[in-house]
């Protein structure tokens, strides 16, 4: 029996992030690494700073201190790579001598989220990352059709063929268990659970490598929640997604996350394998959190 390869490349290197609105409001000195293919759950009660942290990680809010490093080098889809760079930068790299090319590749391989410009950060979120909001209204365009919602990110990647966009839209509606016959309906005519599934289709259609999810099942009826959880599990596995998931629901965390980070008053109090955090919690606060859950 050969020793298994257990190391996985680091996709997101979060270094000492602080974003405070007031004392213990926000997040403070957060330091962790997300590995490729990993689902990391951030759990804690409301006000623990987990949503602030997610906003910083997802490029929506600059931190007061610290860095978010995104390692783009591993398993990069060729098309996305070609499309992502500003044409000037791509051209500058072509035909240069070896040393310069090396510099450029190093620059490409690692991206310091808040050191690059706003335009590049937005491009990253549009092309290589995905964000699923708790409220589908924040992630969808409610006035345009379901098909246009799914197609929008693809068009941002340069796809223009109407028939292809429509076919992809229908395929993704099927994938998230929506009736493809409703492709021309506006999301506002959908139920909450359907809207959330549409938002997930819209986000995942571009095959992002890294997805941020903020309470993706929050605000949904329990039966609708179960359906969504099952769907997310399958998608995460089949697309090989890396995910940062924020949730206050430990049952959701148990089902989706490989690893957990427990936050309280803006700080991380405990990290570990999901099972270990929930079955053998070490920190006083984690023990309280775990023992407070009602099990039917």
């Amino acid at each position: 029996m050969k020793k298994p390869r257990l190391t996985r490349p680091v996709l997101l290197d979060v270094q000492d992030i602080t974003r405070l609105y007031g004392p213990a409001k926000g997040c403070e000195a957060i330091d962790f690494r997300l590995h490729a293919g990993e689902v990391l759950g951030i759990v804690g009660e409301s006000g623990s700073g987990k949503s602030t942290l997610l906003r910083v990680l997802a490029g929506l809010e600059a931190p007061d201190a610290g860095r978010v490093i995104y390692r783009r080098a591993v398993h990069e889809p060729e098309a996305a790579r070609a499309d992502f760079h500003e044409p000037e930068a791509a051209r500058a790299g072509a035909g240069e001598d070896v040393l310069d090319k090396g510099e450029l590749e190093r620059d490409e391989a690692e991206l310091d989220l808040y050191a690059v410009g706003e335009a590049r950060r937005r491009a990253l979120l549009r092309l290589e990352w995905g964000l699923v909001h708790q409220n589908p209204r924040d992630g969808l365009r409610m006035g345009v059709s379901a098909g246009a919602n799914i197609g929008e990110r693809l068009m941002a990647q340069g796809q223009r063929h109407y028939g292809q966009l429509r076919a992809t839209g229908q395929a993704w509606m099927r994938q998230v268990e929506l009736d493809p016959g409703r492709i021309d309906d506006a999301p506002r005519t959908f139920s909450g659970g359907m809207q959330q599934r549409l938002q997930i289709a819209r986000t995942l259609v571009t095959r992002p490598r890294l997805v941020f999810m903020d309470e993706p099942t929050g605000g949904l009826d329990v039966s609708v929640q179960a359906r969504l959880l099952d769907m997310l599990r399958t998608l995460v596995r089949s697309l090989g997604l890396s995910v940062v998931l924020v949730t206050h629901d430990l049952a959701v965390a148990r089902l989706l996350a490989h690893r957990l980070m427990v936050m309280r008053r803006g700080q991380v109090v405990e990290t570990g394998l999901t099972d270990q955090i929930l079955d053998d919690p070490q920190h006083e606060y984690t023990q309280l959190l775990v023992s407070s859950v009602l099990t039917p």
Binding site: K3, L6, R8, G37, E38, H258, R259, T271, G272
Partner: peptide
């Protein structure tokens, strides 16, 4: 081809 100590294994390595 070698040994692996579990008490020092980082959490992410348990997945594999």
């Amino acid at each position: 081809d070698g040994e692996l100590d579990l008490e020092t294994l980082p959490a992410y390595a348990w997945h594999g």
